[in-house]
């Protein structure tokens, strides 16, 4: 499987046209609510809802599948460990030694696991539908210092480059008879040391050259920056933002005052 280096999927759906700031605030609000709730049903709704948003925004099955492949192993692991190590209350379905499996802790384990998936998908709603430059501009417009924004942009920009260099370095060391997949896990991990060190040296060299290149092109000479493509906050964005904030406030109140979604079942 090839890694998706550029998460952004170019497109022109409603999701793509949305102001990146609105999408970012949505991610924050939805994540906050999910972290406060423990209900299996809430997690299921969030997971299904996120899929629907992604699909209606024209995000490909390939990208959605990629998120599933990334998160599913963790989700399964968490669900299983939870059920084993957190004995639940109430009627036990199975009881042996320290193991006590109840419908309650199954639901709890599932909810915790699904929450991981839901959080990931909500984050990727933003990342899949927002180009890197729009993403950075959005963050800068929300108050992130410009240099941080640029640093983030460059880090993202260099991901594929670094992955390519990693491949080259692995090849170079293998050509010197380095065996990467022999022996026990400890030996294998140690075999990667020459690659990691060469990688670090190359990364530092790259960073140094890059900073010199930026400085020689007068980066930082101008304090106030303008943008080539200013962000457009349309009335629809305002409406949606108001909706998101209102819904979040309402759900927050329901959770804190009425205990909505507090229990797994």
């Amino acid at each position: 499987m090839s890694l998706l280096y550029d998460l952004y999927q170019p497109g022109d759906s409603w999701l793509h046209r949305l102001d990146p700031r609105v999408k970012f605030i949505f991610v924050l609000c939805a994540s906050l609510l999910l972290l406060l709730m423990r209900s299996l049903w809430v997690m299921l709704i969030a997971l299904v809802g996120a899929q629907l948003i992604l699909l209606s925004g024209g995000i490909s099955w390939r990208r959605i599948g990629w998120v599933w492949r990334m998160t599913l192993p963790t989700m399964v692991l968490i669900a299983v460990l939870w059920v084993i190590f957190y004995p639940g209350e109430g009627q036990a379905l199975l009881s042996w030694r320290f193991l006590r499996i109840t419908p309650y802790n199954i639901a709890e384990g599932l909810a915790v696991a699904l929450r991981i998936g839901a959080l990931a998908f909500i984050l990727f709603i933003w990342l899949f539908s927002t180009s890197q430059s729009a993403l950075i501009r959005g963050l800068v417009a929300l108050g992130l210092p410009y240099t941080w924004g640029l640093t983030l942009a460059m880090a993202l920009r260099y991901l594929p480059t670094m992955a390519g260099i990693f491949q080259l370095i692995s090849d170079a060391q293998r050509a010197r008879a380095l065996e990467l997949d022999q022996g026990n896990p400890l030996r294998r991990a140690r075999a990667h040391l020459p690659i990691v060190v060469a990688m670090l040296i190359t990364a530092l060299r790259t960073a140094q050259n890059l900073s010199l290149a930026l400085a020689s092109r007068a980066f930082g000479a101008q304090r106030k920056r303008t943008h080539l493509h200013p962000l457009h906050f349309r009335p629809l964005d305002g409406l949606l933002l108001a909706g998101i904030l209102l819904a979040t406030a309402a759900l927050l109140w329901a959770r804190l005052a009425l205990g909505l979604g507090q229990e797994p079942l």
Binding site: L168, A172, R174
Partner: peptide, 22 residues
Amino acid sequence: RPVSELARTVGYVFQNPDHQIF
């Protein structure tokens, strides 16, 4: 044949020395 075995017979100096120096 694995690379590690062929490396006995065929030495390959990569284009960029920094890709092997550690």
